[in-house]
């Protein structure tokens, strides 16, 4: 088993090096470096989104398509408050609070009604919820040029020739910190143990007396806070358009699939790899047209690779 893991890592490293060399061939190293760092920057956002999705999926079995919409609602309200001149840190907290409330409303009121349905039904229900949130947000804030900026945008450091703002570094660091934090929470706390138990077998967990509603509410809460933070990052680093932020959940799910909706470290690596490959594809006249589908092709390849004779990702019990 350990040999198989090592083999997977070896194949991954060789594939990444080969891709970087192939796409960067004939280009100055400085240019390749610029695109590489730029890709890491966007990849960290895919990873951040993916981590939020996996955290909830592991505890509740719900693949939440509404994460992006909750983040979009939060950051739009933060922008509105900032536009009215309200103190910046308060607006950021508002963004996180709004996403938390949206997540909890779904987690407490709607999700329990679907608790015994198929995972696909649960996922589609969250997509419907996402579209409702998006509709409300689009109704309140009509299409208009806007920009959401954080003070950390003003400070930057140069990495391989590319100026990277502190906001991007925060997004990157947050991805790693959330992975570490969630790992310790799941493996070193009682609620974490209960979450893992729920994810493993909800029926059995209920029989064992695990307070399902309480544990799931905590999971939805954590997911909401991550969604709020992710929304702030997307609003600042991608653009302040609710539609775009809402559907960032799609490449984020591709990153989550790279970790088989289970392994947060793989989600992080998958997201970063997607960003880098997508960015480096720009260097190829032949392949730059396929950039938008790159995350999904990568996710499909990873899925096929891992599914060799193993359990199905979406059923979890095969």
């Amino acid at each position: 088993m350990r040999n198989l893991k090592h083999l997977n890592w070896m194949i991954y490293l060789i594939a990444m090096v080969a891709i970087v060399l192939f796409l960067g061939s004939g280009k100055p190293i400085k240019i390749v470096g610029l695109f590489f760092v730029s890709g890491l920057a966007i990849g960290s956002l895919y990873a951040l989104g993916g981590i939020g999705i996996v955290v909830l999926y592991r505890a509740t079995g719900v693949l939440n398509f509404a994460n992006g919409a909750a983040g979009a609602a939060g950051v739009m309200l933060a922008w509105q408050f900032a536009d009215w001149g309200i103190w910046g840190p308060f607006t950021w907290l508002v963004a996180i609070f709004v996403a938390l409330i949206i997540s909890l409303v779904y987690g407490r009121l709607i999700a329990p009604l679907l608790a015994w349905r198929e995972p696909v039904v649960k996922a589609v229900a969250t997509l419907g919820f996402a579209l409702i949130i998006l509709g409300i947000v689009s109704f309140i804030w009509e299409d208009d040029p806007r920009k959401f900026a954080l003070p950390s945008d003003k400070i930057g450091v140069y990495i391989l020739g590319l100026r990277v703002t502190v906001t991007r570094l925060i997004a990157f660091a947050a991805s790693i910190c959330i992975v570490i934090g969630i790992y310790f929470y799941l493996y070193h706390t009682k609620v974490g143990l209960q979450m893992r138990s729920l994810a493993n077998d909800r029926d059995l967990s209920a029989l064992l007396g695990i307070p399902i509603l309480k544990v799931e509410t905590i999971a939805w809460g954590i997911s909401g806070v991550i969604a709020g933070f992710t929304g702030l990052m997307f609003g600042d680093l991608i653009r302040l358009e609710p539609f775009v932020i809402t559907f960032m959940v799609i490449p984020s799910i591709a990153a989550a699939v790279c970790g088989r909706l289970d392994n947060l470290i793989l989600v992080l690596i998958g997201g970063l790899s997607m960003g880098v490959i997508e960015s480096l594809l720009t260097l190829s006249q032949v392949f730059k047209g396929v950039r938008p589908i790159a995350p999904f092709v990568i996710a499909a390849v990873v899925l096929l690779w891992y599914q060799r004779g193993r359990r199905l990702t979406f059923s979890g019990t095969d």
């Binding site: 240019i31 610029l34 730029s38 966007i42 997508e278 720009t282």
Partner: peptide, 20 residues
């Protein structure tokens, strides 16, 4: 020219492409 998809999250690559 560098082309972007309407919903593309990564606009920086297009900018870098034009600059390069």
């Amino acid at each position: 020219m560098a082309l972007l998809n309407p919903g593309a999250p990564d606009v920086n690559s297009a900018l870098l492409e034009i600059i390069s």
